[in-house]
Simulated scan of single mutants.
Amino acid sequence: MSPEPGSLDELAAVVADGAAGDAIAHAEVSVGFLTQQGVRHAGRERGYRNHVLSLRVEDAVGSCAVEPGALTDELVVDCAGAPVRELLRHDEIAVRIAALDAYLMWRRPHREHAEQVVVQRGTSLQKSLQRAESVVSLLPPGVRRVLVIGVVNSLLQRLRERGIDYLPCDRKGGETEWGEPIGTAAMSEVDGCDAVLASGMVAGTGTFPPLLEHCRRTGKPLALFAQTGSAALPWFIGSGVTAVSAEPYPFFWLDGGPTAIYRYSTAPQEDVR
């Protein structure tokens, strides 16, 4: 294993060479699928949509969020039966990340290495707020201003309730539920915050490498809430990443019943169960 990979592609390269076990030599994807979701929680003014590529390796499913329409049905179906090692070098970054995520989740299951937190049954908003409480609790004490990359209004609500100032950033721009402008250039804002809370989607946008380098250099806390790359991003814990809220498929928004997330951290964790 490279001592400090700077991106998921660098991690994928060493995994392809056997850094996470020689099972990579025969591992194959058995199922590929695309989940498309639209939501507007009751009582909220704004909605959002998600498209997620998921690949299955043995008993594990890895995922990567994509822009709507970015992947063809043929590309997704072609992943089924393909060797993982081959997909780790695929031209499409979402395929590389989903394959890496699935393989690492198979070889290093969350349940064996992280604290499980159950998001209890409820409405879509209730479950969103439960998850947000668990994610926000991964920030260290004393944080005053957080750069939030990948705007989720429930996370912002929980930060507001704790009296923590934040700068919201998202490639789509727009406004938060409270009419606050959403920036689109995260790295131009990072110096003005004393912690970062970022979606796992940064792994597929090019934001993760400079963000990781900044946090390694400055020691600034970096907590990730990850559906994309949930089993891959914990490999950066202690090497620029301080905490990960890892949420494997099926995600909380797919089921009204109990669902699980897993918390990785370099520090003692607040009990939110």
Rank of each mutant, 00 (worst) to 15 (best):
R111M: 10
P109T: 14
D191E: 14
D271T: 07
V52Q: 13
G21S: 08
R85P: 06
A186P: 00
E270I: 15
L71N: 00
P83D: 05
F225D: 13
A223G: 11
R40F: 00
Q116C: 15
T184W: 00
V151P: 02
L100M: 01
K172W: 11
R49P: 00
P83M: 07
V29Q: 06
M1N: 09
S2V: 13
A102H: 08
L167F: 05
G238I: 00
E92F: 09
A70R: 15
G204E: 02
R144E: 07
D59E: 05
P140S: 10
R56Q: 10
G163Q: 11
R121C: 03
N153P: 04
R158S: 03
A243H: 15
R96N: 06
G256A: 14
W253H: 12
S124C: 10
D165T: 02
V190W: 02
A25S: 09
E189A: 10
S2I: 12
V244A: 04
R108E: 06
M105F: 13
D91T: 12
G206S: 03
A267D: 05
Q130C: 11
D22H: 09
P83L: 08
P3H: 15
A114Q: 04
E177P: 01
S7Q: 05
V61L: 07
Y249W: 14
I182H: 01
S54R: 10
P83A: 08
R263Y: 11
P221R: 12
E74A: 14
I24D: 06
G229V: 01
D17E: 11
E86C: 03
E247A: 07
A185T: 06
W178Q: 10
A98R: 07
V29S: 05
A16K: 08
R46P: 00
L71K: 06
L211C: 10
S239F: 10
C215P: 02
V143F: 07
S128M: 11
P109E: 05
E175P: 01
G21Y: 05
G18Q: 11
D194A: 09
P109C: 13
P181E: 03
L53V: 09
S54T: 09
P268F: 11
L224P: 04
G18E: 09
